[in-house]
Amino acid sequence: MMAGGASAVGYETFSHEADIGVRGCGPDLASAFAQAALALTAAITEPAAVAAAVAVDIDCCAPDPELLLVDWLNRLIYEMATRGLVFGRFEVAIDGDRLRGRAWGEPVDPPRHQPAVEAKGATFTELRVAREADGRWVAQCVVDV
């Protein structure tokens, strides 16, 4: 979970009445995005319990970092839905308006993963991508589940 300091890396889910918020933090934008993806998985299942058996490459482009976060999470949701996967590890590189990422995961196994919800889509609610006063980056939004 989250810790303080400019070098802190971490993720958490946060409360929303109907749905669930996902938040990632890191020393740079890309690591905050990777952590936000872990928070998305945490809304569904325990990320540490997901094996890195297959990798999926993701490439997206958006006019601003907030839209890029929504696109990144929505692509992960789409890949999970169409491939029947859950992801437990992420790598992200961001260059200007372009994100190139890789997600590692495995086919969802309900008895083992105990998936609590199905993510429907990332929303613009509580959407925030920003550098905090302490220097770390935060990337968050509410996900409809």
């Binding site: 006019p63 839209l67 929504v70 929505n74 949701i77 839905a81 169409t82 889509g121 990332a122």
Partner: peptide, 17 residues
């Protein structure tokens, strides 16, 4: 199901832009 979720996702973004 997934069809509605994807339509919502795509048009929400398109409307924002």
């Amino acid at each position: 199901r997934g069809l509605g979720h994807q339509i919502g996702t795509e048009f929400l973004r398109a409307m924002v832009v």
